[in-house]
């Protein structure tokens, strides 16, 4: 194992609702090495965004531990957390609502530097702003422009510049390109890869777009109803998905080519409610391989092959026979 930057252990985040406890994130554990990218994929309501926000303590976890450079950040005070924010940043999904409409481009990028008190001298600080704008590909003439005058791609560049402003080590990217057009999306993805190399960043990349996550991540974690159900290196997951849900998810991607298109696995039904889930496999009611054990016991995440983790009774049973 390499140099572990982030370790998440049994992370849980429940929300109280009038109908009961909503298990947004339920017992999620993983480790992430420095300089790598972990992609978290899943459909709406699977808890992927909440996972990202809870790791950054923008939501207080219900239970569990998050070790950042060996330090459990769920135990430190709010004050210490504020200092730590320099190192852990977030890039938002919606570049239209995540920027204050009353701040110009340069003000928005300057704000984090100012708040952290990193650079006291005004001109010095402004040079840093210009440097950041240059890094993310924003022309200097935009310094006095307001976000509503810019298109989604440029706004997302502002968001990235803000995240970079304090030289973070780790960035959670919450669907950073899903609000953007295809041609702009590719620009932003390339930019994020470049700065990752340049600054040695570690990413958690949250998305519902499987082709993007495949392109962007080293490891991919698949979530379903608050549970992490499969995690593997990207090529491994795409080559040999094991969980029936992952298999269906991968086959559902509309592939932009007209020859040798794969066979599609259609899963029936829709996602069930994450409120007070029973301790059984949460995918059981939609799964074509569902057996009795699936509706009576909750499957645990098990390393079935090196680096390949799956939470599925069927996979476990098959692996058990093989050995």
């Amino acid at each position: 194992m390499g140099d572990v930057l982030l370790e998440v252990k049994n992370l849980k985040k429940y929300f109280k609702t009038p109908r009961g406890m909503l298990h947004a994130v339920d017992d999620v554990s993983f480790t992430l090495e420095r300089g790598k990218t972990l992609g978290i994929v899943g459909e709406s309501g699977c808890g992927k965004s909440t996972t990202g926000r809870t790791i950054l303590r923008l939501e207080e976890p219900t239970s569990g531990e998050v070790f950042f450079e060996g330090r459990d950040i769920t135990k430190i005070s709010k004050h210490e957390m504020r200092d730590l924010r320099k190192e852990m940043q977030l890039i938002f999904q919606d570049p239209f609502s995540s920027l204050d409409p009353r701040m110009t481009v340069s003000q928005a990028i300057e704000e984090p530097i100012k708040l952290a008190g990193l650079i006291k001298d005004k001109n010095e600080r402004f040079r840093r702003v210009l440097h950041l704008m240059d890094t993310v590909g924003l022309a200097q003439r935009l310094v006095n422009t307001y976000p509503h005058e810019l298109d989604g791609g440029r706004r997302q560049r502002i968001g990235i510049a803000r995240a970079l402003a304090m030289n973070p080590k780790f960035i959670v990217c919450d669907e950073p390109v899903s609000a953007l057009d295809v041609s702009i999306q590719a620009q932003i993805l390339n930019l994020m890869k470049e700065i990752q190399k340049e600054y040695g960043l570690t990413y958690i990349f949250i998305t519902h777009d499987l082709s993007v996550v495949n392109h962007f991540s080293d490891d991919i974690a698949v979530m379903y109803l608050g549970r992490l159900i499969e995690k593997a290196p990207a090529e491994r997951l795409f080559e040999k998905p094991m969980h029936p849900y992952t298999q269906a998810l991968l086959s559902a991607i509309p592939v932009p080519r007209i020859h040798n298109r794969g066979e599609r696995i259609l899963i029936k039904g829709e996602i069930t409610s994450p409120i007070n889930p029973k301790p059984v496999c949460r995918f059981a009611n939609r799964c074509e391989y569902c057996t009795e054990v699936c509706t009576s016991q909750e499957p645990q995440l098990i390393e079935v092959e090196p680096q390949h983790f799956v939470a599925c009774h069927k996979v476990n049973a098959e692996m058990g026979q093989g050995q």
Binding site: K86, Q89, D100, E111
Partner: peptide
């Protein structure tokens, strides 16, 4: 609005 959360994320 998300920009308020964004401000919190940069430590305001």
């Amino acid at each position: 609005m998300e920009y308020v959360e964004a401000a919190r994320a940069i430590g305001a």
